[in-house]
Amino acid sequence: MTFTVKIFLISVFVSSSFIIYHFIDVQAQHLLAQALYLGDPDAFNTTKEDCVWKREGADNLCPDPAIRIIMYTSGIVKDKLVFTMDHPDWLNDSEWQPAKENIILVHGYAGGDDTLPIAVLRDAYINHGGYNVFLVDWGTLGQPPCYVAAVYNIRPVSVCLAKLLMRLRALGLPPEKTTCVGHSLGAHICGLLANFLNFRIERIIALDPARPLIKPGNINRLDSGDAKSVQVIHTNAGHYGEGGRVGHIDFCINGGRRQPYCGNSSNINLCSHIWAVCYLAQSLFEGSEPMAEPCNRRCPTSVLLPTARQRSGRFGYAVGYAIPMGQKTPMSASGSYCIKDTHPPFCPSHAGAPGDKRCCI
């Protein structure tokens, strides 16, 4: 039985966890664990019996100890503050700075506070110094090997996260200066929470939004209606990541499917899926922004070689011109754009250069 067939069989499921697992044989469950865990599948200290299925309803309290918003203060990773709903002036009593843009980071399956790959992006925003950095930790609801439960849980996570963000807004967090950045399943959480907010998110940056068990047109799927600007960066489209157009603007890296610097990886698709994080991290720093050219409507697609204009660094934002991908993409940008890049993004080329060694192959 092929991977595609197995995914189809387990994607036709209903809300009961018992019925879901009825359709997943041992072999398919092992395949999901291997394919989607960001690390060594033999390192699991949990089993499917440990999976948490978060029920919606009045019995679910929010805030929830399994859904935390962590703010990083002082520009130092170890200095962090967990948001509490009952503090009457939490933002102003913290080191939050109202002049800065607010970044809400949402990890994917098998993530959590201080885990890879989201920690690379967290550290990049903190080290840049120009942002208020918040991280949504829902790791206990998406622990390996519980990918099916993680997909099931993104809706209740989004409901609670929306309540937390509305409280932060009441304390002074401005929606027009707030971006939700999500990787994999985290990208769909950024989109889904928009359905439960009493305001509209300014921008979503979705890093290779997860594809397995996320049905096109499903209520739990990210789409362009979820924010004023929805940007999607595809690095493994059609496999672990969504294929085709998803947002207002979609970027296809090296065709959007497999990254050339992942060729020696034991799992080229998983490697490609993760590296979307490093592309966004690279885009934060002046002079390092990846530049993209207009291209076809879908990923995977052919990619365009850099033009003389692109290499010279002189760019316009009119139709047909290259634009920066990532944090500095214009809010008004739309369509499909492609990048050809044979080097691992955000891998420092020399001492003192912007980058993170964890983004080097």
Rank of each mutant, 00 (worst) to 15 (best):
I268W: 03
Y321W: 10
L197W: 00
I20R: 15
P290Q: 03
N45P: 02
M85Y: 13
H22R: 03
I219C: 03
I7R: 01
A99T: 14
G139F: 12
V106P: 09
V181M: 09
G186Y: 04
T84A: 14
V5F: 02
R298N: 15
A58H: 14
N198G: 06
P294Q: 05
D226A: 04
D25V: 01
T307Q: 04
C51W: 04
A99C: 11
C252S: 02
C347S: 06
D137K: 09
A99H: 14
L304M: 14
Y321A: 12
L197E: 01
T329D: 04
G182F: 11
A206Q: 02
D356V: 01
F346Q: 03
C359Y: 01
R55F: 11
T178W: 05
N132P: 02
N132G: 07
H22P: 03
I19C: 08
H188G: 07
E202M: 11
S312P: 01
G326D: 01
G313K: 02
A58T: 15
R311N: 11
V303E: 12
I76A: 08
T84S: 15
K163I: 11
V26W: 09
Y37H: 14
R122L: 14
A170K: 14
T84L: 12
C360T: 04
P344D: 00
N195F: 09
R169H: 12
M1F: 04
Q231G: 05
T46F: 13
P216C: 03
K48A: 12
L171D: 15
D341N: 15
G316M: 10
D42Q: 14
I7L: 15
S17H: 13
C338P: 00
C278A: 11
Q97W: 06
K100G: 04
G352S: 08
M85N: 13
P216K: 00
V232L: 04
I103S: 00
L38N: 14
Y131G: 06
V26L: 11
L207I: 02
M85P: 09
L284F: 08
W96A: 04
D79P: 05
H273W: 01
A322Y: 00
S349G: 12
P260I: 11
K328N: 10
I126H: 09
E95V: 02
L173W: 10
I67K: 12
G172M: 10
A28C: 13
